[in-house]
Nucleic acid binder design. Sequence first.
RNA 1: GCCCGCGUGGUGGAACGGUAGACACAGGGGACUUAAAAUCCCUCGGCUGCAAGGCUAUGCCGGUUCAAAUCCGGCCGCGGGCACCA
Length: 727
Amino acid sequence: RKAAVVNWDPVDMTVLANEQVIDGKGWRSGAAVERRELTQWFFKISDYSEELLSALDGLTNWPEKVRLMQANWIGKSRGLQFAFDMVGAPAGFETLEVYTTRPDTLMGASFAAISPDHPLAKALEADPKVAAFLAQARLGGTTAEALETAEKIGFDTGIRVKHPLDPAWELPVWIANFILMDYGTGAIFGCPAHDQRDFDFATKYRLPIKPAFLGEGMADAPMAEAYVPMKSERVTYVRGFAGAETQTGDEGVATAIAHAETNGYGKGVTKFRLRDWGVSRQRYWGCPIPVVHCPTCGVVPEAKANLPIELPYDVSFDIPGNPLDRHPTWRDCTCPKCGTKARRETDTMDTFVDSSWYYARFTAPRATTPTVAEEAAYWMNVDQYIGGVEHAILHLLYSRFFARAMHKTGHLPAAAIEPFNALFTQGMVTHEIYKTTDAAGRPVYHLPEDVTVFNVADRRIVVPGNVPPPVDMIDDVDAFIRALSDEGLLVEVIPSAKMSKSKKNVVDPMNIIAAFGADTARWFVMSDSPPERDVEWTASGAEAAFKHLSRVWALCSRIGDMPADHKGEGDEELARATARAIDEVTRGIEGFAFNKAIASLYAFTNTLAKANASTAPMKEAIRTLAKLMSPMTPHIAEEVWSYQGGAGLCAQGPWPKADPALLIDDTVTLPIQINGKRRAEISVPKDMPASEVEKLALADEDVIRFLAGQPVKKIIVVPGRIINVVV
RNA sequence: GCCCGCGUGGUGGAACGGUAGACACAGGGGACUUAAAAUCCCUCGGCUGCAAGGCUAUGCCGGUUCAAAUCCGGCCGCGGGCACCA
């Protein structure tokens, strides 16, 4: 229960918190959310923004999608940062720093705006009108919808800034609720012509809208919305100040930054969207943050000898809030620096902290230090990491950061800074949701095993309970459904979703195992969908899997009963089929295409069931089948293996290897197309030269019939694949 | 709004640019049964034909190619991620 400690810095930040989190009193759902300042602990992941972004290129065995999501999350942008000189601002606020990714639109500026959380806004808060505005701006929800629909509101401070390119030109400074303190400098210059938000704001408050550029060949005209072309697009500057009159946005930005740097009013900077990782939680169930608050020394890291700080067990959750805050003794401690009475930090760490380095801990689980150098060097990295896509950003990015931090603190070797060599994101097992409504209008969810699904006249009807109604006696289906509905017996079927206990769309694995065994459950889950996709759980699918495994067992006992000297037919073909099965199943498993591997096993089993070969190849085939099945269905595989006289466990023996000679057929069947349509096929020896194949194809009677004497323009022979005759 | 991804039978899904629908589920038919279950066999994209077969078909429209589910462009639909990020 300890975590590596990296860059402990208390940071004052504005965070969003609801009442429950702040004072532990209210726990009403939908309680008003307000914004307050809390002291929180952060990991300075932003120091690694560039590194975490550029290293994504090296993760060649990660899905492109995940790398892209991380790149977008890190969000690198290049822009200009510069300072406006202010007129009429309080003492200490001589300049206003702003950041823009479109410095080429500088001449389209019509105002400057600061975040309600900007230090300047706070400095002005003594003015009751400002205070009232800030209170209003801080209201409002934090959900995506709330933000989307939130109206833009602003307050003109009366302060003015001088335009960097023309000191005589002054712009008003507004406080605006849509400016974020967390990004850039918390202040912007507004260019309504080329930013939709600024456009909306300028329209509302009647500020000038002046284009800096027009689309190539477009005329200057009043605009209905902001003109925001891609930076790669060429535009004609009507209020340009750097570079060519017509150039791409990228060129415009580059020349504008150069202009600012040459003339000394600003500099090009790179910003990242990635914010520091706030790890403080006002909860019990996280690792305690090993920090002591001392009245004389301030914030002091706990002495190493006292680590790990363990959570107390005698806590109560009767009252909402963090029990650590109320614990009588846990909070009390002595300052590791001066020895006086002090208080422990009661915030605990985000549980993502634990999941960010467990893989490293696994390399030396019983060590008294977080990791052991030799063990970490030996075991790291994780060769293949498998998890849901929902971890694409947070967990996987935090882990990448944490591995780097652990390297810096000497807990991991340099080779382990990218902890996961290969990543596979698997889908989920889903099921539809069955819902009814109780008398009070509350939703009631039903387990799949507690409803009955049946069809009447192509209508799928679901009722609670396990007794289907007498379907034959229903003649008016609509009336029947209405009656069910009136009695509250019509179950609403909600489309398939990730299995969740609260929605009761779960199938208990224990029930499946009790009914069919664990092999069946594993076989079915892997058989239908590729693993990166979600699988819909169906009872019939599980039954089908069970039937198939029963067939395998029946086949096993039949082959087991064969007399040792039985001479059959098709020994060669069966040996080929066996080799092909080994090849296909191996490639399927190695390529994470378990559904294809299982399809091959079905085909091989069917071939074997129909075969009438001699005893030796039959036994060889069933033993191979056991081996190939063992990753999916270990129990039946071992039974079959042992029944067929296999030595030891098949899980312990080597994986079968296909004889390459048996994988190559001596003759191949080639389809013949005429103008791209399949018309015939011929069998030819596999190494027959193309010219011979051509002759044979043109001599084929179906081909002759279809050509009907037309001259052949061209003939394409793809060896081993296809022949196309063009007329 | 921005960034990704995906659209193939009734269903889950196969298909290095080369025989579309492998392998299954469901359905239909049959055998065995007094009957049912279980098991086994046949059939199963659509249209057409007694049949052999033919035509048509991978969301829609167009293009590249001897050949397109696959590559390119444009629509439509669905899903995921991000989001007052200046």
